[in-house]
Design a protein around this nucleic acid. Structure first.
Lengths: 205, 189
DNA sequence: GCTTTAAAAAGTAACAT
DNA sequence: ATGTTACTTTCGAAAGC
């Protein structure tokens, strides 16, 4: 019947419009974050899979789109913190986090915890720190994380502390505030992680 | 010497239970007569009443059904609810003699007494079986099928077990978790 | 799904001193 | 720089939006 036909078209159009909106949002946020095209493609795939598995029911398109981008960044090895992601999204951090966990579980993405070392290049670049500092920070992270010091700690705070420590050790000192600003964590967190890491590394300075 | 059975470290932190007096209530008047009662139907349909000893909070509904939470044991739940029942009787409200009290959830804490490498545990238990997002919460979430409970594991070796209906559920859970981590060689080492 | 209640774990954050 | 308070997660029931 004509009515049923129109309804189908209407539904199809609405669905198509929503998909286009989601993909354009992913594109917009990805551009704002300055992540490569490959990440946007991965995010698009995750969003389409979420759509196919009906994960959007009861959730906002924007929330799922943002979570897909967050997951894609991690999967591609260039993670953005929820804090950074929420700055380019109109969805609040808490909602992005819970939607991400839901999508991640349902699609069985099997995402590994973020490795703090993945933040080192970008943070150090923003702080104009040398290759030597980066290498030292990575060394601190790897060594102390193997001792179980990483358990339960936020990857950004952990990376920030290691970078702060490395900058001191390499005589390229950055203040806690400078590092805290690029990593978007507090000085208190850097201070706490720094103390533990230094102790575990057996450094005194 | 210091290493004891982790089961011995189990502590019940909260017990949630539900019951009912088998009588409809006019919460507006109960709120007027019962001192210390918090009732704001716009915000929540239940009236909140807190007992001091044992410490707990009771949510009293218009239907006469009651939820009790905050107690440290099932015995405390009964004690707290008896106080609530008596308070209601003081208000000339008929309350059944011994309303059935059903424990809905027990929250416990325990200590494996060994630090945990949550990253290794996440991989070991299988990423599909756990949730570990340290950026959002420091605990690793592990859902068990039997007993049907949820455990939150922390780097310190301490854990929280919730979702159980009886104290034994927590003991079984601690046993299973200990065994599983042991066979994976993830307790220290 | 949300609202309210209580409680633990450990990390992080906001604001005060 | 430290201390306090508060929020994140898990669970369940209740009645109603």
């Amino acid at each position: 019947r004509l009515r049923k036909w129109q309804e189908r078209i209407r539904t199809k159009d609405a669905g198509e419009r929503n998909l286009q909106f989601a993909l354009s949002e992913i594109d917009r946020m990805a551009s704002a974050l300055g992540v490569p095209r490959s990440v946007r493609e991965v995010a698009s795939v995750i969003y389409r899979r979420s759509l196919a598995d009906d994960l959007i029911r009861g959730r906002s398109i924007e929330g799922v789109a943002t979570s897909a981008l967050y997951a894609a960044c991690r999967k591609e090895g260039i993670p953005r913190s929820l804090e950074e992601i929420s700055e380019v999204s109109r969805v609040e951090r808490k909602e992005i986090g819970r939607t991400y966990r839901y999508v991640s579980q349902e699609l069985a993405l099997e995402m590994r915890p973020v490795d703090p070392k993945k933040y080192v290049p970008r943070f150090c670049s923003e702080l104009t720190l040398s290759e030597e500092v980066q290498a030292k920070a990575n060394d601190i992270i790897e060594t102390t994380a193997d001792e179980g010091l990483l358990s339960g700690k936020s990857p950004t705070g952990y990376a920030a502390a290691a970078i702060y420590a490395a900058s001191l050790l390499c005589n390229e000192k950055k203040t806690q505030r400078e590092v805290a600003d690029v990593a978007q964590v507090t000085e208190v967190t850097i201070r706490n992680r720094y103390q533990e890491q230094i102790e575990a590394m057996g450094i005194h300075s | 010497m210091s290493a004891q059975d982790p089961k011995e470290t189990i502590n019940i932190e909260n017990v949630v239970a539900s019951t009912g007096i088998g009588q409809e209530l006019d919460l507006q008047s109960v709120a007027m007569d019962l001192e210390g009662a918090d009732y704001d139907p716009e915000q929540f349909p239940g009236l909140v009443y807190r007992t001091q000893e044992p410490k707990s909070a009771a949510l009293i509904f218009r239907s006469g059904k009651i939820v009790c939470t905050g107690a440290k044991s099932t015995a405390d739940v009964h004690e707290s609810l008896e106080i609530v029942f008596d308070k209601l009787r003081d208000l000339e409200i008929r309350v059944e003699e011994d309303p059935e009290i059903v424990v809905q959830n027990i929250v416990t804490s325990a200590d494996l007494q060994k630090t945990l490498n949550l990253n290794a545990i996440a991989i070991g238990l299988g990423l599909e079986n756990i949730e570990y997002e340290p950026e959002q919460f420091p605990g690793l979430v592990y859902r068990l099928d039997d007993p049907e409970v949820v455990a939150l594991l922390f780097g310190s070796g301490k854990l929280v077990i919730t979702g159980g209906k009886e104290p034994a559920d927590a003991e079984h859970a601690v046993d299973k978790i200990t065994d599983r981590l042991d066979e994976l060689g993830l307790l220290d080492g």
